[in-house]
Amino acid sequence: MSVFEHRISYIGERALLLDVAGPMNVDVQKRIWAMAQLVGQHGGVVEETVPCVHSLLVVLSPDVQPEAFRETLDAMWRQVEPLEAPGRLIDVPVTYGGAMGEDLAELAASHGMTIDEVVKRHTAPEYTVFALGSQPGLGYLGGLDPALATPRRAVPRLSAIEGSIIIGGAQAGVLSCTSPSGWHIIGHTDLKVFDAEAEPPALLAPGDRIRFRALEVIQ
């Protein structure tokens, strides 16, 4: 079994971080999901696990020395089988461009594409929710067409509205809350991906799949 190159670092006095280098890879992420489940079964030793994109934070119980668990964590990574999270397929209707997709034209021009080509490439893949983070309910999505990968803005916006369809680096996403953001805004959806009064409050979960669907393209 191939083992993806990884490292384990000490975080603070009683936590370990396992992370894997390289571009977003769903096979790596399936192993991270599996590790979160497996490591979490070590009651009395592990207090909390926090999976993210290609990484897993393991917070140990106060009486456990990180050095003592590091080798165990390493051995588990080498043996763990990928977790095939069933996930749901979620349809995200999008209005591209216009006042709520203000970066679409500039992003298209930067790649030598038309607006319609960007929309076609953005709606073509089936994305995977690798993890939630940054803000409540925000999914880090893998699957973006590499031709649309765009470095984040040099100057972040102070306010990007909830529901903004965004691209940052090789990732796509949907803003779950109105907040500052350095990601490029190419459209907007009325679908609510986070509602504090709902159960569960986050619409997305790791392993879910997303398809963006163009309702309208404003040139």
Rank of each mutant, 00 (worst) to 15 (best):
M1L: 01
S2T: 13
S2K: 12
F4D: 02
I8N: 07
S9F: 01
S9I: 08
I11L: 15
L16E: 06
L17A: 05
L17E: 07
V20A: 03
V20S: 02
A21V: 11
A21D: 14
A21C: 08
P23R: 09
M24T: 11
N25K: 01
V26M: 05
V28P: 01
Q29R: 04
K30L: 03
I32D: 01
M35I: 03
A36Q: 05
A36C: 10
Q37H: 15
L38Q: 10
V39Y: 15
H42K: 13
V46D: 01
E47T: 08
E47N: 04
T49L: 08
P51Q: 06
P51N: 12
C52V: 14
V53R: 05
L57T: 15
L57S: 11
V59Y: 07
V59R: 05
L60G: 06
L60V: 10
S61L: 15
S61C: 15
V64N: 01
P66K: 14
E67Y: 07
E67M: 11
A68H: 11
R70T: 14
E71N: 07
D74E: 09
E81I: 07
L83Y: 06
A85W: 10
G87I: 04
R88D: 10
R88E: 14
T95F: 03
E102F: 02
L107W: 09
A109K: 08
S110Y: 00
G112Q: 03
T114N: 04
I115M: 06
D116F: 01
D116V: 08
E117T: 12
K120M: 12
A124E: 14
A124F: 02
P125I: 12
Y127Q: 01
A131E: 05
A131R: 08
G133R: 09
S134R: 08
P136S: 07
L138R: 02
G139H: 00
Y140M: 07
G142V: 09
D145C: 00
P146W: 03
A147N: 05
A149F: 09
P156F: 12
P156E: 11
S159Y: 05
S159I: 06
S159G: 08
E162Y: 08
G163H: 08
I166E: 00
G168I: 09
A170L: 03
G173K: 05
C177H: 13
C177G: 03
T178D: 05
P180T: 08
G182H: 10
K192L: 14
V193H: 02
F194M: 13
F194S: 14
F194D: 10
E197G: 13
A198E: 05
A198N: 09
A198C: 06
P200L: 11
A202E: 04
L204H: 11
L204P: 04
A205W: 03
D208K: 00
D208G: 02
R209V: 13
A214T: 12
L215I: 10
V217L: 07
V217R: 01
Q219V: 04
Q219D: 15
Q219K: 09
